[in-house]
Protein backbone atom coordinates (compact mmCIF):
# COMPACT_ATOMS: atom_id res chain seq x y z
CA UNK A 1 0.00 0.00 0.00
CA UNK A 2 1.19 3.51 -0.79
CA UNK A 3 2.47 5.53 2.13
CA UNK A 4 0.14 8.50 2.58
CA UNK A 5 1.52 12.02 2.13
CA UNK A 6 -0.63 13.30 4.97
CA UNK A 7 -2.63 11.16 7.34
CA UNK A 8 -5.20 12.34 9.85
CA UNK A 9 -6.30 10.01 12.63
CA UNK A 10 -9.19 10.48 15.02
CA UNK A 11 -9.37 14.26 14.70
CA UNK A 12 -11.58 16.09 17.19
CA UNK A 13 -12.12 19.84 16.97
CA UNK A 14 -14.55 21.86 19.03
CA UNK A 15 -15.63 25.43 18.42
CA UNK A 16 -17.32 26.62 21.56
CA UNK A 17 -20.05 24.13 22.26
CA UNK A 18 -20.26 22.72 18.73
CA UNK A 19 -18.13 19.80 17.62
CA UNK A 20 -16.84 20.43 14.11
CA UNK A 21 -14.93 17.14 14.03
CA UNK A 22 -15.69 14.07 16.09
CA UNK A 23 -12.99 11.55 15.29
CA UNK A 24 -12.30 12.06 11.59
CA UNK A 25 -9.60 10.02 9.85
CA UNK A 26 -8.40 10.49 6.28
CA UNK A 27 -5.36 9.75 4.12
CA UNK A 28 -4.11 11.95 1.30
CA UNK A 29 -1.87 9.93 -1.02
CA UNK A 30 1.07 11.33 -2.96
CA UNK A 31 0.03 12.76 -6.31
CA UNK A 32 -3.70 12.10 -5.98
CA UNK A 33 -6.64 14.45 -6.17
CA UNK A 34 -8.96 13.60 -3.29
CA UNK A 35 -12.42 15.13 -3.05
CA UNK A 36 -13.96 15.59 0.38
CA UNK A 37 -17.70 16.07 0.08
CA UNK A 38 -20.54 16.38 2.50
CA UNK A 39 -23.39 18.69 3.46
CA UNK A 40 -22.57 22.16 4.75
CA UNK A 41 -21.67 22.13 8.43
CA UNK A 42 -20.47 18.54 8.26
CA UNK A 43 -16.92 19.51 9.22
CA UNK A 44 -15.20 19.08 5.87
CA UNK A 45 -13.58 22.52 5.94
CA UNK A 46 -12.32 22.00 9.47
CA UNK A 47 -10.83 18.69 8.38
CA UNK A 48 -8.98 20.51 5.60
CA UNK A 49 -7.79 23.21 8.01
CA UNK A 50 -6.42 20.57 10.36
CA UNK A 51 -4.68 18.58 7.63
CA UNK A 52 -3.13 21.76 6.21
CA UNK A 53 -1.82 22.73 9.64
CA UNK A 54 -3.86 25.94 9.65
CA UNK A 55 -5.80 24.82 12.71
CA UNK A 56 -4.64 22.49 15.44
CA UNK A 57 -7.07 19.71 16.34
CA UNK A 58 -8.08 19.29 19.98
CA UNK A 59 -7.47 15.55 19.77
CA UNK A 60 -6.04 13.12 17.26
CA UNK A 61 -2.97 13.36 15.09
CA UNK A 62 -1.97 14.66 11.69
CA UNK A 63 1.14 13.06 10.22
CA UNK A 64 3.08 14.65 7.40
CA UNK A 65 5.94 12.28 6.70
CA UNK A 66 7.67 11.84 10.02
CA UNK A 67 6.26 15.11 11.34
CA UNK A 68 3.27 15.62 13.64
CA UNK A 69 1.45 18.69 12.35
CA UNK A 70 -0.92 18.65 15.32
CA UNK A 71 2.07 19.24 17.57
CA UNK A 72 4.09 21.58 15.34
CA UNK A 73 4.44 25.18 16.46
CA UNK A 74 2.96 28.24 14.79
CA UNK A 75 6.21 29.13 13.05
CA UNK A 76 6.82 25.67 11.64
CA UNK A 77 3.28 25.43 10.30
CA UNK A 78 3.60 28.92 8.77
CA UNK A 79 6.84 27.90 7.10
CA UNK A 80 5.20 24.76 5.68
CA UNK A 81 2.54 26.95 4.06
CA UNK A 82 5.17 28.77 2.06
CA UNK A 83 7.26 25.71 1.19
CA UNK A 84 5.28 22.47 1.10
CA UNK A 85 1.60 23.41 1.05
CA UNK A 86 -0.57 25.74 -0.99
CA UNK A 87 -4.10 26.88 -0.17
CA UNK A 88 -6.99 27.98 -2.35
CA UNK A 89 -10.20 29.05 -0.66
CA UNK A 90 -13.52 30.28 -1.95
CA UNK A 91 -12.25 33.83 -1.47
CA UNK A 92 -10.18 35.87 0.93
CA UNK A 93 -6.84 34.16 0.44
CA UNK A 94 -5.43 36.97 -1.69
CA UNK A 95 -4.16 40.16 -0.09
CA UNK A 96 -6.48 42.87 -1.38
CA UNK A 97 -3.79 45.54 -1.29
CA UNK A 98 -1.30 43.66 -3.47
CA UNK A 99 -1.25 43.22 -7.25
CA UNK A 100 -1.74 39.75 -8.70
CA UNK A 101 2.00 39.52 -9.35
CA UNK A 102 2.88 40.42 -5.75
CA UNK A 103 0.19 38.11 -4.44
CA UNK A 104 1.60 35.15 -6.33
CA UNK A 105 5.15 36.07 -5.36
CA UNK A 106 4.11 36.48 -1.71
CA UNK A 107 5.14 33.05 -0.33
CA UNK A 108 8.52 33.39 -2.02
CA UNK A 109 8.98 36.94 -0.78
CA UNK A 110 8.07 35.87 2.74
CA UNK A 111 10.63 33.09 2.48
CA UNK A 112 13.29 35.64 1.63
CA UNK A 113 13.63 35.03 -2.12
CA UNK A 114 14.89 38.07 -4.00
CA UNK A 115 12.19 40.26 -5.48
CA UNK A 116 13.32 39.73 -9.06
CA UNK A 117 13.44 35.95 -8.76
CA UNK A 118 10.07 35.83 -6.97
CA UNK A 119 8.43 37.98 -9.63
CA UNK A 120 9.90 35.85 -12.37
CA UNK A 121 8.39 32.62 -11.00
CA UNK A 122 5.15 34.43 -10.26
CA UNK A 123 4.96 35.62 -13.86
CA UNK A 124 5.53 32.11 -15.15
CA UNK A 125 2.65 30.75 -13.08
CA UNK A 126 0.33 33.60 -13.97
CA UNK A 127 0.99 32.86 -17.63
CA UNK A 128 0.44 29.18 -17.02
CA UNK A 129 -3.04 29.90 -15.66
CA UNK A 130 -3.82 32.45 -18.35
CA UNK A 131 -3.89 35.53 -16.13
CA UNK A 132 -0.57 37.16 -16.97
CA UNK A 133 -2.57 40.02 -18.47
CA UNK A 134 -3.96 40.71 -14.98
CA UNK A 135 -0.53 40.76 -13.29
CA UNK A 136 -0.78 44.46 -12.42
CA UNK A 137 -4.38 44.32 -11.16
CA UNK A 138 -5.48 43.96 -7.56
CA UNK A 139 -7.99 41.28 -6.54
CA UNK A 140 -10.86 43.77 -6.44
CA UNK A 141 -10.24 44.71 -10.07
CA UNK A 142 -10.48 41.16 -11.46
CA UNK A 143 -13.37 38.82 -12.19
CA UNK A 144 -13.97 36.02 -9.72
CA UNK A 145 -12.57 33.41 -12.08
CA UNK A 146 -9.41 35.41 -12.71
CA UNK A 147 -8.97 35.94 -8.98
CA UNK A 148 -9.22 32.20 -8.33
CA UNK A 149 -6.70 31.46 -11.07
CA UNK A 150 -4.34 33.96 -9.45
CA UNK A 151 -4.94 32.11 -6.17
CA UNK A 152 -4.07 28.85 -7.93
CA UNK A 153 -0.87 30.38 -9.23
CA UNK A 154 -0.06 31.44 -5.68
CA UNK A 155 -0.73 27.96 -4.36
CA UNK A 156 1.50 26.37 -7.01
CA UNK A 157 4.35 28.89 -7.09
CA UNK A 158 6.31 27.14 -4.36
CA UNK A 159 6.09 23.75 -6.14
CA UNK A 160 4.20 22.37 -3.12
CA UNK A 161 3.71 18.76 -2.14
CA UNK A 162 0.02 19.37 -1.50
CA UNK A 163 -2.59 21.95 -2.39
CA UNK A 164 -5.58 22.41 -0.10
CA UNK A 165 -8.59 23.71 -1.98
CA UNK A 166 -11.73 24.61 -0.02
CA UNK A 167 -14.67 25.22 -2.38
CA UNK A 168 -12.33 26.87 -4.88
CA UNK A 169 -15.20 27.37 -7.32
CA UNK A 170 -17.84 28.20 -4.72
CA UNK A 171 -18.27 31.79 -5.84
CA UNK A 172 -17.96 31.14 -9.59
CA UNK A 173 -20.42 30.31 -12.34
CA UNK A 174 -20.04 26.83 -13.78
CA UNK A 175 -17.95 27.80 -16.82
CA UNK A 176 -15.46 29.82 -14.78
CA UNK A 177 -15.45 26.99 -12.26
CA UNK A 178 -14.66 24.51 -15.01
CA UNK A 179 -11.66 26.57 -16.11
CA UNK A 180 -10.35 26.83 -12.57
CA UNK A 181 -10.78 23.11 -11.87
CA UNK A 182 -9.22 22.04 -15.17
CA UNK A 183 -6.25 24.33 -14.54
CA UNK A 184 -5.83 23.06 -10.98
CA UNK A 185 -6.06 19.37 -11.83
CA UNK A 186 -3.77 19.61 -14.85
CA UNK A 187 -1.13 21.58 -12.99
CA UNK A 188 -1.28 19.23 -10.01
CA UNK A 189 -0.98 16.10 -12.12
CA UNK A 190 1.91 17.52 -14.09
CA UNK A 191 3.95 18.37 -11.01
CA UNK A 192 2.83 15.36 -8.96
CA UNK A 193 1.17 17.58 -6.37
CA UNK A 194 -1.55 16.08 -4.19
CA UNK A 195 -4.80 18.01 -3.96
CA UNK A 196 -7.27 17.87 -1.09
CA UNK A 197 -10.44 19.29 -2.61
CA UNK A 198 -13.33 20.19 -0.33
CA UNK A 199 -16.61 20.72 -2.16
CA UNK A 200 -20.32 20.14 -1.83
CA UNK A 201 -20.69 19.92 -5.63
CA UNK A 202 -20.52 16.46 -7.21
CA UNK A 203 -19.56 17.94 -10.58
CA UNK A 204 -16.48 19.44 -8.93
CA UNK A 205 -15.80 16.24 -7.00
CA UNK A 206 -15.78 14.43 -10.34
CA UNK A 207 -12.44 16.08 -11.13
CA UNK A 208 -10.89 14.04 -8.32
CA UNK A 209 -9.50 10.50 -8.36
CA UNK A 210 -11.19 9.49 -5.13
CA UNK A 211 -13.97 10.71 -2.92
CA UNK A 212 -14.40 10.77 0.83
CA UNK A 213 -17.70 11.84 2.33
CA UNK A 214 -17.97 13.61 5.67
CA UNK A 215 -21.07 13.67 7.82
CA UNK A 216 -21.48 15.01 11.36
CA UNK A 217 -17.76 15.43 11.91
CA UNK A 218 -16.62 11.96 10.85
CA UNK A 219 -15.48 10.54 7.51
CA UNK A 220 -18.41 8.35 6.53
CA UNK A 221 -17.02 6.74 3.37
CA UNK A 222 -13.63 6.80 1.75
CA UNK A 223 -13.07 5.26 -1.70
CA UNK A 224 -10.34 2.65 -1.81
CA UNK A 225 -7.26 4.06 -3.47
CA UNK A 226 -7.00 2.94 -7.08
CA UNK A 227 -4.29 0.29 -7.70
CA UNK A 228 -2.22 3.14 -9.06
CA UNK A 229 -3.08 6.75 -9.41
CA UNK A 230 -3.89 7.23 -13.05
CA UNK A 231 -1.83 9.65 -15.13
Amino acid sequence: MTTPLIEARGLVKRYGTTDALRGASLRLLPGEVLAVTGPSGSGKSTLLHCMAGIVRPDEGEVRYGAERLDQAGENRRSTLRRTDFGVVFQFGQLVGELTALDNVALPLLLAGTSRAAAHKSAGTWLERFGVLGQAGLRPGEMSGGQGQRVALARAMVTAPKAVFADEPTGALDSLAGEQVMTALVHAARESGTSVLLVTHDAQIAAYADREATVRDGVVETEDEPAAEVTR
Binding site: A202, Q203, A205, A206, E211, D223
Partner: peptide, 17 residues
Protein backbone atom coordinates in the same frame (compact mmCIF):
# COMPACT_ATOMS: atom_id res chain seq x y z
CA UNK B 1 -20.01 5.69 -6.12
CA UNK B 2 -21.22 4.36 -9.49
CA UNK B 3 -22.53 7.77 -10.52
CA UNK B 4 -19.33 9.50 -9.49
CA UNK B 5 -17.21 6.96 -11.35
CA UNK B 6 -19.17 7.72 -14.51
CA UNK B 7 -18.93 11.46 -13.84
CA UNK B 8 -15.16 11.12 -13.47
CA UNK B 9 -14.98 9.45 -16.89
CA UNK B 10 -17.08 12.19 -18.47
CA UNK B 11 -14.98 14.89 -16.77
CA UNK B 12 -11.83 13.26 -18.11
CA UNK B 13 -13.36 13.25 -21.61
CA UNK B 14 -14.17 16.94 -21.54
CA UNK B 15 -10.99 18.18 -19.86
CA UNK B 16 -8.56 16.37 -22.13
CA UNK B 17 -6.47 18.98 -23.93
Amino acid sequence: AAHLARMRELTAVKTVA
